[in-house]
């Protein structure tokens, strides 16, 4: 089946949408799913991690919810809060790829961590630094050069 958005590539996922008052299904290729915001980045990363030979030894299951790693990858979702500990080693690279960071900042349940005032543009800087890493990984050196200059500009006094 062809993708219903571009009509070119093979559809790999179906999403729910409302068409003229009815709930309907829409078949999309991976590219269009991402573009339209339906992509499940984690499922894609999970698959590529498996392809990279990241196969779990034996059938390890989460002691809390019983999910195996393959269940998680297939669903594109983690089974329970405890899974993050059970499959920590395998989740960490995926989380890092998705967020560029693996350290929570912001609200906490006890509110005990003082929220340090963050300098303006710091978030932008973090994002740019991550992109720079990605650009270098992907050997897109022209992009990387632009990013490097932008990061320097951000670091050395902002003009907005």
């Amino acid at each position: 089946m062809k993708c219903q958005a571009c009509g070119k590539h093979a559809a790999v996922t179906h999403v729910k949408t409302i068409t003229n008052g009815e709930l309907s299904e829409y078949f999309l290729c991976a590219e269009c799913a991402r573009r339209l915001g339906y992509g499940n980045l984690f499922a894609e990363l999970g698959h590529s991690l498996n392809l990279l030979g990241f196969q779990p030894e034996a059938e390890e299951r989460c002691p809390c919810c019983g999910a195996a790693w393959k269940d998680i990858v297939r669903a594109g979702r983690v089974g329970c809060p405890e899974c993050y500990r059970t499959f920590y080693d395998r989740l960490l690279p995926a989380v890092q790829r998705m967020h560029g960071s693996v350290r929570h900042q912001g609200k906490t349940p006890d509110g005990s961590l003082p929220r340090a005032p963050e300098p303006a543009g710091k978030g932008l800087l973090l994002v740019k630094r991550r992109q720079l890493r990605e650009a270098i990984d992907a050997e897109k050196f022209e992009d990387a050069a632009v990013l490097r200059d932008e990061i320097r500009a951000l670091e050395g006094g902002r003009d907005e």
């Binding site: 967020h99 960071s101 978030g123 994002v127």
Partner: peptide
């Protein structure tokens, strides 16, 4: 898109 490593206020 990003929710980890960036506070609510910064995002």
């Amino acid at each position: 898109r990003v929710t980890l490593g960036i506070s609510e206020q910064t995002a």
